[in-house]
Computed example of a mutant assay.
Amino acid sequence: MKVEIHYVNSLEEECAVLEICENHPGIIKLQEIIQKGTYQTLTIPCFLREQIYSISCEHILYFETIQDKLFVHTGSKMYEAKKRLYELEEILSEHFARISKSVIINLEHVEYYSPLANGLMKATFYNGEETYISRKYLRLLRAKIGGKKL
């Protein structure tokens, strides 16, 4: 497929035009990516002691609320952010999923899922950290990761 890029004046609205002979799921996915802007890297302002950081969502393993505070886990550090989980759900890409009342995970950093005896599931990240998926969110997570058996 040929790709052309034409630069426009900054006052003009950017627009992507796809000339296709037939519609298929890949084109629909591409359209969603362009319209939602999920190709852009989202950063979350975070705090560690008195320092302010801008953490790229690519590096975030999961978000967790504990006693009305939002913690951002990157694998090597844990930051605090001034957002609520419902606010994050609205802006995060499809690579993130809510797995409990207090946790949103980055699906790209999960190495594997394990069933537990009490009906819960455990998500283990590539760095060895673990978090738990509640039964309430399990069906939504299955759908999000493509119906794979969990």
Score class of each variant (00 low, 15 high):
Val3Lys: 08
Ile91Cys: 02
Leu88Ile: 02
Lys69Leu: 01
Ser54Gly: 01
Glu64Met: 10
Glu90Gly: 05
Tyr39Gly: 13
Ile55Lys: 03
Phe96Glu: 06
Leu116Pro: 04
Lys148Thr: 08
Ile133Gln: 04
Lys77Arg: 15
Val3Gln: 10
Glu12Pro: 02
Gly128Phe: 10
Tyr86His: 13
Glu129Tyr: 09
Ser76Arg: 09
Lys149Asp: 13
Ile34Gln: 01
Gly146Asp: 11
Gly26Leu: 10
Ala16Ser: 10
Cys46Met: 04
Ala97Asp: 02
Thr74Ser: 08
Ile44Cys: 00
Tyr113Pro: 00
Leu138Asp: 00
Phe63Cys: 05
Tyr39Ser: 11
Cys46Thr: 09
Ser10Ile: 05
Glu32Thr: 11
Arg49Asp: 15
Met1Asp: 13
Pro115Glu: 10
Ala117Asp: 09
Glu14Cys: 05
Ser93Ala: 12
His6Phe: 07
Glu19Gln: 13
Lys2Ile: 13
Glu130Trp: 01
Leu85Cys: 05
Leu141Thr: 06
Arg142Met: 12
His95Val: 00
Tyr39Leu: 11
Ile44Gln: 01
Ile105Phe: 03
Asp68Phe: 06
Leu92Lys: 03
Lys69Ile: 03
Ile99Ser: 05
Glu94Ala: 07
Ser54Arg: 14
Glu90Asn: 09
Glu32Arg: 15
Glu58Met: 05
Asn23Arg: 14
Gly37His: 07
Val103Ile: 14
Phe125Asp: 00
Leu138Met: 14
Ala97Tyr: 03
Val110Thr: 08
Ser102Thr: 15
Ser76Ala: 07
Ile52Met: 09
Glu129Ile: 02
Lys82Arg: 14
Val72Thr: 02
Ile33Ser: 10
Ser134His: 09
Lys122Arg: 15
Tyr53Trp: 11
Val110Pro: 02
Lys2His: 14
Ala123Met: 03
Phe96Trp: 05
Glu94Thr: 11
Ile91Trp: 04
Glu22Thr: 09
Glu13Ala: 11
Lys2Tyr: 12
Val3Ala: 09
Arg142Leu: 04
Thr124Pro: 02
Leu138Cys: 11
Arg49Glu: 12
Ile104Ala: 02
Lys69Asp: 09
Glu80Ile: 06
Glu87Met: 08
Gly128Ile: 01
Ala97Trp: 03
Glu94Met: 01
Tyr79Pro: 01
Tyr137His: 15
Met1Leu: 09
Ala81Val: 03
Leu48Thr: 03
Thr65Ala: 08
Tyr132Pro: 00
Glu4Phe: 13
Leu18Val: 15
Leu150Tyr: 11
Glu32Asp: 13
Ile20Gly: 07
Asn127Gly: 01
Leu61Gln: 06
Ser114Asp: 09
Asn23Phe: 03
Cys57Asp: 04
Gly119Cys: 03
Glu19Arg: 12
Leu88Asp: 02
Asp68Met: 07
Lys82Cys: 05
Ile5Lys: 15
Glu13Cys: 03
Ile145Ala: 04
Phe96Ile: 10
Leu18Gly: 04
Cys46Asn: 08
Glu4Ser: 07
Thr43Pro: 00
Lys36Asp: 13
Val110Ile: 12
Met78Lys: 15
Gly119Asn: 04
Val110Arg: 00
Ile91Met: 11
Ile60Met: 01
Cys21Met: 07
Gly26Ile: 03
Gly147Asn: 13
Leu42Ser: 00
Gly75Lys: 01
Lys144Ser: 11
Pro45Ser: 12
Ala143Arg: 10
Ile27Phe: 06
Tyr132Val: 12
